[in-house]
């Protein structure tokens, strides 16, 4: 099920954005603050209605999809780790099954296992650390078995160990056939862990392609306006200034 974006325009935020994503890979959306990354992700999730253009899933426009059908296909993980009530972890993960109208134990247990949080299932939300909360919220998305996982800054507020672990889980989901789209601020994470990068600048696509090309030194200097260079081998790159 391909995710296609055609001439997407959102007043003041996005302008003429087009791309086509295939499932089974990780795509990073990068760009400076205010470039329109989160707006783009929310539009892909069907949460914002574009002023012009269209987002389609498997050839069907998101506009024409009933909200529950869309929710079965697209799992959305916002940057906020908001959990309003001190509910049990398992009930949070169960919410992922809401679009399917069931609370099937198999996908829920599978998601808990995939993120290694089975032992947390009966804990309360407010007793979790930041890293545990992030994994629980991702497990909620995985429990819905979506075809596409859209995550906005999933690595923010996580230490390096949890960042790597979370990226590994997302890679596993991608290998399982799901498409993964991540908004990432950390360009090194994008370079090392994504298959493709889309760079946004003031609502336009500044670069799109394999990470080595789309996140090359010239693009970064042009878009972020800082002098940088990559060091290290492919897959283990680090970005240094100057």
């Amino acid at each position: 099920m391909r995710l296609a974006v055609r001439d997407l325009t959102l007043a003041g935020r996005l302008s003429g954005v087009s791309f086509d994503l295939a499932p089974g890979s990780i795509t990073a959306i990068c760009g400076p603050n205010g470039a329109g990354k989160s707006s783009l992700l929310e539009t892909l999730a069907g949460l914002l209605q574009p002023d012009a253009g269209d987002v389609s899933l498997g050839g069907q426009s998101l506009r024409d999809m009933p909200p529950r059908e869309r929710a079965k296909c697209v799992g959305y993980l916002p940057q906020s780790h908001e959990i309003a009530w001190d509910v049990p972890v398992r009930s949070i993960v169960e919410l992922g099954r809401m679009p399917h109208g069931d609370r099937l134990a198999d996908p829920i247990d599978c998601a808990l296992r995939a993120l290694d949080i089975e032992r947390l299932a009966h804990r309360r939300a407010q007793s979790l650390s930041g890293g545990e909360t992030a994994r629980v919220l991702l497990a909620r998305v995985l429990a819905g078995q979506p075809r596409w996982i859209l995550a906005d800054e999933p690595l923010a507020a996580l230490d390096i160990g949890h960042q790597i672990a979370l990226l590994r889980h997302l890679r596993r989901a991608g290998s399982g056939g799901a498409g993964v789209v991540l908004v990432l601020h950390d360009l090194a994470h994008a370079m090392n862990h994504a298959d493709r990068a889309i760079v946004l600048d003031q609502g336009h696509i500044a670069a799109d392609g394999a990470c080595e090309d789309a996140l090359d030194r010239d693009t970064i200097e042009r878009v972020w306006k800082v002098p940088v260079r990559w060091i290290g081998e492919p897959g283990h790159r680090a970005l240094v200034t100057g």
């Binding site: 069907g46 929710a71 959305y76 916002p78 906020s80 908001e82 919410l95 919220l137």
Partner: peptide, 10 residues
């Protein structure tokens, strides 16, 4: 409980 955007996405 997980915020309005998550509820809508569900």
């Amino acid at each position: 409980t997980l915020g309005e955007p998550v509820a809508r996405s569900l």
